[in-house]
Nucleic acid binder design. Structure first.
Length: 562
DNA sequence: GGACCTTTGAAGTCA
DNA sequence: TGACTTCAAAGGTCC
């Protein structure tokens, strides 16, 4: 079981966060991928039956008790996250994410004629964003100071303390073009030496250790133990990262000018109108803007007003939780699933993704676990004072707290899914993996997962349904009528019963109380709205990845089936 | 317009 | 410490 912990001591990432799921039988699984895909559809259909309706009413009190110290930019974080996800996957994906059509990696190969910062072919802003946003400590420390000394960004101008400049450098500063020279992964330009300009003299000098990320809690050494997601881009030995000089710093958010063609890679959620807007309430306790605070990429409309997303961000005043492994996987694969499937409902897509998640090999999952771990790491760096509790109750409205007392009828009419009616009952019984199954194989209990019943050679059905180690099948066994073809109301009603009655051994209790997430915040919606179609990389990957879609495109007809 | 659905995982709360 | 709750993304659906 791969230890995702990059060298131990990473409190942010669980050492054992790796699902041992179906480590054996992967070969068999692929043999029946087509069948699995079909079963996925069926299962999704069956799963469309509403399992439950739990109305949870939690007070919104004490929401403001704890506020993250820095004011960060959600979009900035999002964007960096996107880069990070893509970068890490590409680096680690071996064959899983093979993209022979883009051997040069999109970050470097995709031309961006519209991006003035890339006109020279220098390292794209996205890459820089990732490089420093995600790995601030791996970045050559002096560059930040240099950047600060040269770049007249508001945050930099306000920063008078060189020692902390790097630490407080906005994570998006790497987006700035440092140089007009072409980027060469293997041979960093000479000007990209780890030199820094003396803030006073302006003369390049070697960075002092004290200038190395004084802010971020992680030591460079600790960070260095973590495999860099951009290993393909980073010199493998000696130099942890391409030193990024400040020579080209012109704009703190060059990504704003990023070519839309890269949207699929970077999920360009940035509006080209983002302005290096200095956040008022973003001063760090030191008085120096935190990287997450400085120049929060508040979108601005052409008229200079804040975009709705920005306003929403300011209004909500909260920072999103770091994505977990599955969320990262979901974001990555959603487009693929959508592209291959006529199904558009996210709920159904998520079910497919959930099954695929379980069908992933441990190595494949490990990528995302590690990615998630780094996400949390970055998040903690950006928002040191942030706590998941801060977001509690931040949603516009809370879930209904009906729980068991809620009658099935309450939820039936609204949430029933027509497609359920077409589900073969057997499929329901053979339902997809559930969170329970994940729990059994949860990263926290890798050994148990290895010893789990899923390990044995899967039967034919198991091959088709690699997620045999699940509780959902049980659920359906317990509530076969849930998805039993019948009136739409029945499905929904049964769903409530299932949620209240079905009690998987999952420690999370998720099944007992299915989360009824409210709609994402406007920023999240914006994020979703910007979901771009599968990138060329994705499309290429479709042919090589997992072969789940090797068969004809999935066509899970839900409502249309009616 | 906004809640709901659906997934898994992380982190929080509570007994 | 275990059980439970909340939130993270996403976008169609429904009220």
């Amino acid at each position: 079981m791969p230890q995702l912990n990059g060298g131990g001591g990473d409190e942010l990432g669980a050492n054992d966060e790796l699902i041992s799921f179906k480590d054996e039988g992967e070969q068999e699984e692929k043999i029946s991928e087509n069948v699995s895909a079909e079963r996925d559809l069926d299962d999704v259909k069956s799963s469309l039956v509403n399992e439950s309706e739990n109305n949870s009413s939690s007070s919104d009190s004490e929401q403001n008790e704890r506020r993250p110290q820095p004011r960060a930019d959600l979009e900035s974080y999002e964007k960096a996250r996107e880069y990070f996800t893509e970068a890490l996957r590409r680096q680690q994906d071996g064959g899983f994410f093979k993209s022979p059509h883009y051997p040069g990696y999109p970050f470097l190969m995709i031309p961006d004629l519209t991006n003035p910062y890339l006109s020279s072919g220098a390292l794209s802003p996205s890459a820089r964003t990732y490089l420093q946003m995600k790995w601030p400590l791996l970045d050559v420390p002096g560059t930040a100071v240099l950047r600060d000394s040269r770049s007249p960004t508001p945050g930099q101008l306000s920063n008078k303390v060189p020692v902390v400049q790097h630490a407080h450098m906005h994570p998006l500063t790497p987006l700035i073009t440092y140089s007009n020279e072409h980027f060469s992964p293997g041979t960093p330009p000479a000007h990209l030496s780890p030199e820094i300009l003396d803030p006073k003299t302006g003369i390049p000098r070697t960075p002092h250790p004290s200038e190395l990320s004084p802010y971020y809690p992680l030591s460079p050494g600790a960070m260095g133990q973590i495999p860099h997601p951009l290993g393909w881009l980073v010199p493998q030995q000696g130099q942890p990262m391409y030193p990024i000089t400040a020579g080209g710093f012109r704009h703190p958010y060059p990504a704003l000018a990023m070519n839309a063609s890269m949207s699929s890679l970077v999920s360009s959620h940035f509006s080209p109108h983002i302005v290096p807007h200095h956040h008022h309430h973003g001063l760090h306790q030191t008085g120096i803007p935190h990287p997450a605070i400085v120049s929060a990429a508040i979108k601005q409309e052409p008229n200079g007003e804040l975009s709705p997303a920005a306003n929403s961000f300011l209004e909500t005043d909260r920072y999103p939780k770091p994505l977990n492994a599955f969320m990262l996987y979901m974001k990555e694969m959603r487009a693929k699933v959508v592209a291959e499937c006529t199904l558009k409902e996210s709920a159904a897509i998520n079910q497919i993704l959930g099954r695929r998640w379980h069908s992933l090999s441990r190595e494949e999952q490990a990528k995302y676990y590690e990615l998630a771990r780094k996400e949390r790491q970055l998040h903690s760096q950006l928002y040191p004072g942030w706590s998941a509790r801060d977001n509690y109750g931040k949603r516009k409205k809370r879930k209904r707290d009906n729980k068991t007392d809620s009658t099935p009828e309450d939820f039936s009419a609204r949430h029933k899914k027509p497609c359920v009616q077409y589900l073969p009952q057997e499929k329901m019984i053979d339902s997809p993996a559930s969170s329970h199954g994940s729990m059994l194989d949860s990263p926290a209990t890798p050994s148990a997962a290895l010893a789990s019943p899923a390990a044995p050679a899967p039967t034919h059905s198991e091959q088709a349904q690699p997620l045999s180690l699940t509780t959902k099948p049980d659920r359906h066994h317990h509530f076969p009528l849930l998805s039993k073809p019948s009136s739409s109301s029945s499905s929904s009603s049964s769903s409530s019963a299932s949620s209240s009655s079905y009690q998987p051994t999952s420690a999370s209790g998720r099944q007992s109380t299915p989360p009824l997430l409210s709609r994402p915040l406007p920023l999240a919606s914006l994020h979703a709205s910007l979901l771009s179609p599968p990138s060329p990389f994705h499309q290429a990957a479709l042919h090589s990845h997992h072969a789940l879609f090797q068969s004809q495109p999935l066509s899970l007809v839900t409502k249309s089936a009616d």
